[in-house]
Nucleic acid binder design. Structure first.
Lengths: 257, 257
DNA sequence: CCCAATTTGTTCGTATGTATC
DNA sequence: AGATACATACGAACAAATTGG
């Protein structure tokens, strides 16, 4: 029984798409995982009774989705492949290329998720993990002396958040936190917001993260949530200020996307 | 050639992949949006100096990502296409096919996002929008008399959440709420949790949503957040109960994914 | 209703590249 | 180095779909 395979718009599929779907559901039904080798091109040609070109296009479709990978040579072929986080991020990023997210949009999500992450980790981190977080923090324990140093501290600060996300057992939460950080970075780069690094932003981050680690170590979920919530609010506010400053300086009339 | 030029993972791209990337960045640089027609196959063959098959595979790659759509006939061709939400959902779903989310994982996200959505909408909805929400609620204002009715009420209840998400101006929030609901539905279907519809779950939903609409109308963001937070906790709890019951009944020894 | 033009969709035969033994 | 097995690429032809006369 196909439970929810409804197509509102009949959308006749091309043959390569049909083949791709067939292979996909075939792999799922058999429960095949990464590394399993699919039949060779010539075998698929026989099995589906279609030409080489059609089969090859079908495999390209699966490859574009990150579901398979093909290798040439003896012992080569098409293999089931675990969709990488990079691929998933890129594919989802395509969707938002057309949706035009604002800084407010992204921070609304980060504001909800990051404190939740901190609260869920409180008391459940090993001393090794806490030490790893502290290690990253040493990269920006003292005020930056140059623009170069400031930039390095910024990167390290982002690594802190990425590392924290990595410690969550929730793959969805991990992905979303990294995705939102990624989208934010993309926007700041495209708008050149990084051109005006804000010393207050990264230096205040140090203080927040110091208190966060303490709360995590003590297992104080409420405090951890509150600290990260404040941190997000502050970062959001500072980023909007940068945006305003930049807009006033360079874009007095026109709007840039 | 010195053998020292080792490629750790330079990931040599196949020609169709190169062409796909070239077309993609070409479209972005020119700022072309949905509806713009790309050069025809034959033109692309000339331009890139490659065979028809290679060019077609490149277009399939873009099509699989939802970035273009092709039509046959005069006036046909390959057109830039806005990635649909359905496509984005499916592509991201592929990623989590390998990551094995639990009900807890998904509810951790819903628990964070749904209350945030409610709070952000409080006081900003038009009377027409509020009326639309109330209209959906009339579908399950009285207790279900049959399993069929109960199922319909369940669907209507999900529509309520989808409609609420649709009213957010934040495209990322909209997408995430619908995505998480979708993943949850997929899991419940694959585990047949729907086989045991829980009357308490959907009837209690009615009360929550009634109070939610009142809070939204009054512009009480704090109350709206709290109501949806409680609703999520309750739904999460009930769903875990169903899972436990089902596991005890049908899966005494083995684990099902 | 059919016909013609246009564009993508599909097939087949052949040749080339690449990794393994 | 050579043989083998596999994907990759090319070119010419034909089929199908859509539009307009």
């Amino acid at each position: 029984m196909s439970p929810a395979t409804i197509r509102s718009t009949p959308e006749r599929l091309s043959r390569p798409q049909q083949v791709a779907e067939a292979i996909k559901s075939w792999v799922m039904e058999n429960g095949w995982g990464p590394g399993v080798r699919l039949p060779s091109e010539s075998e698929l040609i026989e099995r589906f009774g279609m030409s080489k070109g059609t089969i090859r296009e079908a495999i390209r479709i699966l490859e574009a989705q990150g579901l398979v990978k093909s290798r040439t040579g003896p012992g080569g072929g098409v293999f089931v492949h675990q969709v990488s986080e990079e691929r998933a991020t890129a594919l989802l990023g395509n969707y938002f290329y057309f949706e035009h997210l604002t800084i407010d949009d992204i921070y609304q999500i980060r504001q909800a998720l990051e404190p939740e992450l901190a609260a869920s980790l409180a008391g459940s981190l090993s001393e090794a993990q806490l030490a790893a977080l502290e290690e990253v923090m040493t990269r920006y324990c003292e005020p930056a002396r140059s623009a170069e140093e400031e930039r390095e501290q910024h990167v390290a600060s982002l690594r802190f958040h990425a590392l924290l996300a990595e410690m969550s057992g929730n793959a969805l939460l991990r992905f979303l936190i990294r995705f939102t950080a990624n989208m934010l970075a993309e926007i700041t780069v495209s708008r050149r917001l990084y051109a005006q690094p804000n010393r207050d932003l990264w230096s205040s981050g140090f203080d927040y993260q110091l208190r966060l680690i303490a709360a995590l170590r003590e297992g104080d979920a409420v405090a951890a949530r509150e600290i990260l919530s404040e941190h997000m609010k502050n970062a959001h506010r500072l980023m909007l200020m940068q945006e305003t400053v930049l807009t006033q300086r360079f874009l007095p009339e026109n709007e840039i996307i």
